[in-house]
């Protein structure tokens, strides 16, 4: 009985709240592209001005993320991909879902370390996060890794939404599953583009912040 509930909870948390937060994160980031530093800083300020922000972060982001990530690694471990013999598109998405899940897990751990964790340690303030991002994306190596990270996360989210619809019995027949595939893959493209454009926007000199002491782990890579 346990496995059923564990897997259903994994599916639910992937969309609510994690998928919703992911979209929110995309919109806040995209404001850096659309409105520049001022707009992005306003977005960060608004989020941190939410009541009980630490409670929201803990119960709607951190704990669901931890559960979804660790249980997801177990799901990925249980898979035995066979794409060489079964080359259909759904089977490729099955394998990609697991591969991008693992990439996203590593990427998010790194990204949270770079940003929220450093805020918690007191190394940077919320206002300096734009500057932290600027330092990360102006380094070519970390820019590429971050791009891989956001594209993988976007695929994992969009395709996960497709399987969420199947898991919860919303899309049952082949036609509805095909139509939802088109919608979810279109969503993947849109979300990826918006995240990548945000990364590009952070390269702008206006985000440069000489007061940012924290240099991320990019130095270990570079």
């Amino acid at each position: 009985m346990k496995g059923f509930y564990a897997r259903r909870l994994h599916s639910l948390l992937g969309v609510i709240p994690l998928g919703l937060f992911f979209l929110e994160h995309m919109i806040t980031n995209f404001s850096a592209y659309e409105g520049g530093k001022e707009s992005f800083d306003a977005g960060v300020e608004f989020l941190n001005g939410l009541p009980l922000v630490l409670v929201l972060e803990t119960f709607f982001i951190f704990l669901p993320l931890l559960y979804h990530g660790i249980y997801g690694l177990y799901i990925a471990y249980q898979a035995k991909p066979n794409n060489a013999h079964y080359g259909n598109e759904r089977n490729w998405r099955y394998t990609l879902q697991r591969v991008t899940g693992v990439i996203t897990f590593i990427y998010i751990a790194w990204h949270v370390y770079d940003t929220r964790f450093q805020v918690a340690l007191g190394n940077v303030t919320h206002e300096q996060l734009g500057g932290v991002m600027h330092n990360i994306v102006t380094n070519p190596a970390t820019f590429v890794l971050y791009t891989i990270g956001v594209v993988a996360a976007s695929f994992h989210f969009a395709n996960g939404l497709w399987s969420f619809l199947v898991t919860w019995g919303i899309t049952v027949g082949p036609r509805s599953q095909r139509v939802s595939s088109y919608i979810c893959m279109a969503l993947f493209v849109i979300v990826s583009i918006m995240f990548v454009l945000s990364l590009v926007a952070f390269r702008n000199m206006e985000f440069q912040d000489p007061t940012v002491a924290f240099q991320s782990i990019r130095h270990f890579i570079a």
Binding site: F4, A79, Y86, R90, V172
Partner: peptide, 25 residues
Amino acid sequence: EACGNSQNCVRSCPKGIPLTTSIAD
């Protein structure tokens, strides 16, 4: 719960049984 939606089953079934429709239902 162990279904991973690869949908290889419905494409391999020699009798053309709509297995993935059954699973989603």
